[in-house]
């Protein structure tokens, strides 16, 4: 099968809308199809990776653990937008998985290298 570079861009907070949850399913299927899958987190999307989701009060299933399991699917390229992190007072230590933090302009260049960019 042809391998293409897929980047899934996550721009929304983890709860409040369904985008983060359903987009993770795209990541897992992309990996199952042996595509070169990477993830970018920007804007409120950086909150998806924040440690310690507690969802009991809102009656939703927490899916923080899925990010930790991405490595098992050989999905290891996780990029976070430096400006989005700074604007929200976050550092990589606040996140539940190892990430590469990069300036927005560099992230843009990385997007340019992709075959398919799916933004959620």
């Amino acid at each position: 099968m042809t391998t293409k570079k897929f980047m899934i861009v996550n721009r929304k907070a983890p709860y409040g809308t369904v985008y983060a949850l359903e987009s993770l399913e795209v990541v897992l299927i992309g990996a199952a199809f042996e595509q070169d899958v990477s993830l970018a987190f920007m804007d409120d999307g950086v909150y998806q990776l924040k440690k310690g989701h507690q969802t009991k009060g809102i009656g939703m299933k927490a899916f923080e653990k899925t990010y930790g399991a991405l490595e098992d699917y050989d999905v290891t390229k996780l990029y976070v937008d430096q400006e989005s992190m700074a604007a929200r007072g976050l550092t990589p230590e606040d996140l539940c998985v190892p990430v590469e933090m990069m300036p927005r302009a560099d992230l843009g260049k990385l997007m340019e290298d992709q075959d398919v960019v799916l933004s959620f």
């Binding site: 099968m1 042809t2 293409k4 897929f6 399913e25 795209v26 299927i29 992309g30 199952a32 199809f33 595509q35 075959d115 398919v116 799916l118």
Partner: peptide, 11 residues
């Protein structure tokens, strides 16, 4: 159909 159809479309 399944999400695989989206990945295939990308390919």
């Amino acid at each position: 159909s399944g999400l695989g159809q989206l990945i295939e479309a990308g390919i």
